[in-house]
């Protein structure tokens, strides 16, 4: 066995192996060519599972989105309909609401998470009980979206004897509001629950980025007469920018695919006002057994996620360069 001291590989070796930057060095010197049995033994099970249950389904879903299919069975009757499943979006007001809502989710939840995340990272950095505060904000990450849905149904309950939010509004003689029953409020109520759930992650990651900024930079800025705000805008934010981009893209991907919390809190209601693409996909494909249409919605989700992910990968590359 090896006699060298055991060196733990660096935790962040991850960044060196992102698309385009695959280090070919070590493995070149690896196994003798021809010993494919060993390769098969190690990589075979993973590749078979991925081929059958990830690659094949992805292609099949794209294929199915051009067909009208009745039933979920393997031999369900189907007919080629071209792009009809996609053009049917134009005749489907619920899917249009869902697309509008998904855009609203992106436009509201992303900046809210990023801005609150940066602000809290900076504020927490200045108190001695930072670790406790971060833990508290992180706790919702441990809770399933299903349980979080129950939590926020309770918080938003119409009756001020039950719902905390309405009880607090009651103190200033407002309400009670029907947060989840009013089409004007419902999406905003969901956004609140989502931000509550995901902010902790943003704070923890942004806080790590903040701590990697050299103190000397801040001190130099102060010596040069920069105030708090100027230092924040001119130094802190630009140096945290790569991390801010990551949080923004991850939040966008998450809200494009948002499902659990909507299903549990509103089921897409009232009257379809809070539907999103993922809830429509589930309903069409598995409740209405409208397989082709459901597949088309899934493809839209995939197409929506790709540009955001491309942004993220480019960020990873620049990160590697630094």
């Amino acid at each position: 066995m090896a006699t060298q001291p055991v060196v733990t590989p660096p935790d962040q070796s991850a960044v060196s192996a992102v698309p385009g930057t695959i280090p070919v060095g070590p493995a070149r010197r690896g196994l003798r060519v021809g010993n494919y049995l060993t390769v098969l033994l190690f990589a075979g099970p993973a590749l078979v599972l991925i081929a059958f249950l990830v690659i094949y389904p992805t292609i099949k879903t794209i294929y199915l989105s051009f067909y009208q299919t009745q039933g979920i069975g393997f031999n369900a009757p189907q007919a080629f309909v071209g792009l009809a499943n996609y053009s049917n979006f134009l005749n489907d007001p619920i899917i249009q609401t869902a697309i509008k809502n998904n855009i609203l989710w992106i436009v509201v939840v992303t900046p809210a998470t990023v801005i609150l995340g940066v602000v809290l990272a900076v504020l927490f950095d200045r108190v001695p009980y930072e670790a406790v505060a971060k833990s508290i904000v992180f706790v919702p990450m441990a809770i399933s979206a299903t349980a979080a849905g129950v939590i926020w149904r309770l918080m938003y309950a119409d009756d001020p004897h039950i719902g905390t939010v309405n009880a607090i509004f009651g103190w200033i003689h407002l309400g009670p509001f029907s947060f989840l029953g009013d089409p004007n409020f419902v999406n905003w109520a969901l956004f609140g629950a989502q931000v509550w759930m995901s902010l902790g992650f943003a704070v923890v990651v942004l806080s790590a980025a903040l701590k990697s900024i050299p103190t000397e930079l801040m001190e130099a800025a102060h010596l040069d007469g920069a105030g708090e705000w100027q230092t924040f805008i001119r130094i802190t934010v630009p140096l945290m920018w790569p991390t801010i981009t990551v949080i923004a893209t991850l939040t966008m991907i998450a809200v494009i695919k948002v499902f659990d919390i909507v299903v549990v809190m509103t089921g897409g209601g009232p009257a379809g006002a809070s539907e999103v693409l993922a809830t429509r996909m589930y309903t069409e494909a598995f409740k209405n057994v409208n397989t082709g249409y459901g597949a088309a919605i899934a493809v839209v989700l995939l197409i929506a996620v790709i540009p955001v992910m491309a942004l993220n990968i480019r960020r990873f590359r620049t990160e590697t360069v630094r």
Partner: peptide
Amino acid sequence: LKFPLRNTIFLTLVALQIVPLQMLLIP
């Protein structure tokens, strides 16, 4: 280990992470 198309297959794996679950459920 060294085997043909190793990096290509790995890159495909990396790319597959973006596929939303919804794309897999029906098939």
